[in-house]
Design a protein around this nucleic acid. Structure first.
Lengths: 343, 343
DNA sequence: ATAAAAAATCAAAGCGGTTTCAAAATCTTT
DNA sequence: AAAGATTTTGAAACCGCTTTGATTTTTTAT
């Protein structure tokens, strides 16, 4: 059943039917009711392809996900971010288009999406420092929202971000307050912008207390259990091992815990751990009683916010750039305790 | 730059240009070369919206992901499956459309995708026993491939699945061979079809050795760290605790390990654990030396295979239904050892 | 009752491609 | 060199909707 057929059944022109269905005012109320009823009865749904061609709008949003090429790692926050964003799209009649593309080859994908007219806007993921994608997107003139900010980019753009620096500053200060003096940082990949900001927070906290950051206590790698394990393991094997860790994710933290226990120590008693918790649905940090002390900010919420921001931006590009900085909460769990007395 | 403009620049009709670009034979080779060159030079990409309307094909595949409503849990295998499938779509000029929808409300989404003509086919995720979605999709006449089979469905349909029963049979037999007699099963949600198959494998192994499965040693819940921890913790607190576990996922296994260690025991020495490993990119089971002994089958591969199968099915619906049963490998890790001598 | 204004409806032209059918150009054959 | 066959190109219809610019109908004012 298409518009023309429906119009015929009603003895009306497609024009009037289209207007009635789209809520234009210049339609007689009685006529509109008649049309609405018929549309429902015949289960009429306008063809998306035709709407898109006629209006020039794609009614779709693109998410371009980079995959870390060297080890094919997908960012685990992906699923929850998408879940949040998808909620918003669904409620607004937008489709979500997903491209999974090799790290660094995103620009071509954006260009493609644009020239094919496949999307009205995109969400940018996994921002790197000096990320050249921002310039690409601006140049292409696609409305976009970045999940995370990029240091070193001049010019303004829309973003949603967590206050990573502040979260890690607080986490580190929390450990310092507990008397820990050697604190390991198990951070994400060095080229990721958020990792830099997190390190800055960590360093600032140390320096603020007159401590000198020790490079051997800072690791950068994928935020996986294995990488977390390796980093912590290495640090614990040092002559002057840390008594506490700040880890960049739940998974990293789980790796750190394994390393701690592998050294015959107990997390929360011998070694403290504080993580950044993205509140991933399948990686809950306990429930009533959190396993890890954490700075917490929901990725799913970030997805919702970013999606809504993008839709706003598509509706009115002049309203941008828009920004939203989310603060992480500090959650007390079982993984932190006072620093052990010096031996 | 659209087709008409490009044709004008070349002093040709849109017809010829379209044919040349789409590889039709009735175009002079010289003309074709000229057209190809111009298309490249002007960076011409046909408008997807127009192609879709003109051809009636969406050139897009839908993935409808249910979210467990009660706790909003996304299936963690999601990201890697998508990564695999996305590769195939990208290579074939297809877009991937994602809908994240509440558990149980998928039928409406399928109907919507169909009537809007938004996709040419769909991939079905998270299959439940007696899954009514299969009938819905057949009735709608959308080509589809199911990731997982559904018990209790009469009639044939296309699927890609892992031999879950066999994997759990082997895992359980492996533990039995090591002398374990009380083996806990930390399984996925009871309404998930694969969980039933896995339990069958587990039960068959026990029964095959003359053992009687103990219901108190079988748990069903989300495959999260926390749920794994809880289930194992409960079993370990029993009067006659298990000396080994079979866990449904890497995350469950990590929870089981935490429970074991919480009881002052050591995994691999006091209690053995064997997991099902989906080879998620961000949850690698060690590298050279696996942490967990596991039955292993790559979800990303499954995504690739399912996507390719769906494209084949779209190209020639009569070629189906197609099936592909993947076998899981048994991988030796550090989490299993001989059963401790009875005290 | 009639002219002017307002409201409701419609015909037709897009949107940017594909595809059918006809026409033009080139090649064979005699 | 003419007729017929084959290649190559093009005009126009179409996909299913939106939207512009009439046109018709109804209402209001004189």
């Amino acid at each position: 059943m298409n518009l023309k057929e429906l119009a015929q059944k009603l003895n009306l022109s497609p024009t009037t039917v289209s207007r009635a269905l789209n809520g234009y005012p210049e339609v007689n109320d009685a006529t509109r009711d008649r049309i609405m009823a018929a549309a429902k009865r015949y289960n009429y749904r306008p063809n998306t392809r035709a709407i898109r061609l006629a209006t020039g709008r794609a009614m779709a949003v693109g998410h371009v996900f980079p995959v870390a090429t060297k080890n094919e790692i997908m960012n685990p926050i992906f699923a929850d971010f998408i879940a949040g964003a998808g909620e918003v799209y669904g409620a607004n009649g937008y489709d979500m288009l997903l491209s999974v593309v090799a790290d660094g080859a995103e620009a071509a994908t954006y260009r493609d999406l644009k020239s094919r007219g496949a999307v009205d806007g995109v969400i940018m993921h996994a921002v790197r420092t000096f990320d050249e994608r921002i310039a690409t997107l601006q140049e292409l003139g696609i409305p976009f929202v970045s999940h995370g900010r990029a240091t070193g980019i001049e010019g303004d753009y829309s973003w949603v971000d967590v206050n990573n620096r502040r979260a890690f500053l607080r986490a580190t200060e929390f450990l310092l307050d507990l008397g820990h003096l050697r604190i390991g940082l198990v951070n994400g990949r060095e080229d990721m912008d958020f990792a830099i900001r997190r390190r800055t927070g960590y360093v600032d906290a140390l320096v603020g207390r007159g401590l000198v950051p020790d490079p051997s206590l800072m690791a950068n790698d994928e935020m996986t259990e294995l990488a977390g394990y390796r980093a912590a393991n290495r640090m614990l094997a040092e002559a002057n091992p840390p008594t506490a860790f700040v880890a960049a994710s739940m998974l990293s933290g789980m790796g750190v815990r394994r390393a701690i226990e592998g050294h015959g120590l107990k997390m929360g008693r011998d070694v403290s751990v504080i993580i950044f918790d993205d509140e991933l649905s399948y990686l809950r940090n306990g429930d009533d009683l959190p396993i890890f002390t954490a700075t917490r900010s929901s990725v799913r919420d970030a997805g919702r916010i970013a999606a809504q921001m993008l839709l706003d931006l598509i509706a009115d590009p002049a309203s941008g750039p828009l920004h939203r900085l989310l603060e992480a909460d500090l959650i007390l769990g079982q993984s932190t305790g006072p620093a052990p007395r010096a031996a």
